[in-house]
Design a protein around this nucleic acid. Structure first.
Length: 494
RNA sequence: GCCCCCAUAGUCUAGGGGACAGGACACUGCCCUUUCACGGCGGCGACAGGGGUUCAAAUCCCCUUGGGGGCACCA
């Protein structure tokens, strides 16, 4: 066994959000590094000048931070292996390009897009593998000059040896490829910027990456990269290819499947630990029946051999369950803290700095709601009546529960009693409601539901009496009056 | 078309020659209950198919089928 220091990396290209799949790749790399007390590197692969943006870099960094995946080297944490943006590493790539050119392991290619397409079509027709026909492999200096004079800008291709390429994947065992079927692929584009396969190899080698852990969509890139390692005389890292994450229809996870980026989950109101816990279970299991793991526990338990080999379908139901579990375990105080930005966003509060009194009251609201919502957006939805002045009564609730014979009188009676209630506590309120019910010789439930609808506009929610306590006398009376008024209007319309 | 990877319920998974094929989500029945949720106790539901190997196959091998990925001057 090699006693090499573990160095792993997450190398996203900043062309969009940090999506669930990327986040899981990042997480597994991070867990691997932390488990083996190695180094976790974040490298930005921004060689696609058309699609890469600085905004996307920031979103990725934010996402990583939100998930709690800190990096030891990378943007903002320069180490001796930097820089960590590929576009800042151009001279490095150039050096190795020249080396390959000099050794005749790579060559200039002046073929145009049109010419390549044509040749590709021809090969398709002939039933041959789709690979470059090596038109430019042995160009004379004279021919090159002529192309240059035509204004053609060359790319550089790697000359692929016709041999078997075998590598040992840490998850899948031996994987074989036939070099003959590979094309002399481009390693440097005509603008002088290296392609992905070339840049990763140089970076992984120079950054001394010990284990390349990435999605299995890279399996077929691996033989190409191995050829580059060999051409350059670099040592090979170990490879581990993770199964993909897919949408419910078994196609690549995309917008059609709902929220796919990590930050969207933040915005909807998921707890980062829950997201991490869930995506950890997409393809990994501890081997026993536990499901809830903190980051620390994951670090302790994580190992590559417990990763499954087949793709996993992302399930929002299961994420919701994880989030609910975390929500239930969280202290009321921490939930208060987390919910405040959402209240602000919904305009339920003016600013995030709440007075001690307001804060105490909010705590009471959370106590009533804890366990009743799956994420903070849902909380905002379910608990709106605590925060708004005027509620909207759900039409269906109004018709089926409130707009019934005798309800108006009950609400009036309740209003009278509550208006003069001195002792605004659960017991006193319950006594009043129960008394009204028994005086009418009906069950408590019969009048509790309409009262709830009158006060909250909803058919569901916390226990009525505790809810009234927290709602407060003023709002309660006011809502009862409004409900009575609405019933009157409905009556005249009949 | 060619190459590669994969295959236990609707979903995530445990199990890797002898097990009642275990758990979780979802769905569902009952209990608790003023509603919803929580909680408790149940239920439905899987080894893709076919050949081998073996006393014995979900487990090992082969084929088929199915799914996924790749074959770019994207990463």
């Amino acid at each position: 066994m090699e006693n090499k220091k573990i160095r792993v990396r997450f190398a996203p290209s900043p062309t969009g959000n940090l999506h669930i799949g990327g986040a899981r790749t990042a997480l597994f790399n991070w867990l691997y590094a932390r488990h083996y007390k190695g180094t976790f590197i974040l490298r930005i692969e921004d060689t696609d000048q058309v699609r890469s943006t600085e905004e996307a870099v920031n979103v990725i960094l934010e996402g990583m931070k939100w998930l709690g995946l800190d990096w030891d080297e990378g943007p903002g944490k320069e180490g001796k292996y930097g820089p960590y943006y590929q576009m800042q590493r151009l001279p490095l790539y150039q050096k190795y390009t020249e080396e390959l050119l000099k050794n005749k392991k790579a060559y200039y290619c002046y073929c145009t897009k049109e010419e390549l397409t044509e040749s590709r079509q021809k090969r398709t027709k002939e039933g041959k593998p789709l690979r470059y026909d090596r038109h430019c492999l042995n160009l004379s200096e004279e021919e090159k000059r002529r192309y240059e004079e035509e204004g053609r800008k060359p790319v550089i291709r790697l000359k692929i040896p016709a041999k078997k390429i075998v590598f040992n994947d840490l998850l899948r065992g031996e994987v074989n490829f036939e070099g003959e079927l590979l094309s002399d692929f481009v390693i440097v584009k005509s603008d002088g910027i290296p392609t992905y396969n070339f840049a990763v190899v140089i970076d992984d080698a120079l950054m001394d990456i010990s284990n390349v852990i990435r999605g299995d969509d890279h399996i077929s890139n691996t033989p190409k990269q191995i050829l580059i390692y060999e051409a350059l005389g670099f040592n090979l890292p170990k490879f581990a290819h993770l199964p993909m994450i897919m949408g419910s229809d078994h196609t690549r996870l995309s917008k059609r499947h709902g929220a796919t980026s990590v930050m969207e989950y933040k915005e909807i109101g998921y707890i980062p630990e829950a997201v991490v816990n869930y995506i950890a279970h997409l393809g990994w299991s501890s081997g026993d029946e536990r499901e809830i793991f903190s980051l620390e526990e994951l670090v302790k338990e994580f190992s590559l051999d417990k990763i499954s080999k087949h793709a996993a379908v992302f399930s929002i139901d299961k994420l919701n369950w994880f989030n609910s579990e975390y929500l239930k375990k969280r202290s009321v105080d921490s939930l208060v803290k987390m919910v405040i930005p959402f209240l602000k966003e919904a305009n339920y509060i003016k600013e995030e700095n709440l007075s001690p009194v307001k804060l105490e009251w909010l705590k009471e609201v959370i106590k009533l709601m804890q366990g009743r919502f799956k994420n903070f957006s849902q909380f905002i939805d379910y608990a709106d009546y605590f925060f708004v002045d005027k509620i909207d009564i759900e039409p269906q609730a109004f018709q089926s529960v409130l707009n019934k014979e005798g309800i108006s009188d009950i609400l009036k009676a309740l209003k009278e009693e509550l208006s003069v209630l001195k002792c605004w506590d659960e017991k006193s309120i319950e006594d009043i409601v129960r008394e009204i019910a028994s005086s009418l010789q009906i069950k408590g439930g019969k009048i509790i539901h309409p009262i709830r609808v009158a006060l909250t506009g909803k058919k569901i929610g916390p226990g009525l009496f505790e809810l009234i306590v927290v709602l407060g006398q003023e709002k309660t009376i006011q809502r009862l009056e409004e409900a009575i008024e609405k019933l009157k209007v409905a009556e005249t319309k009949k």
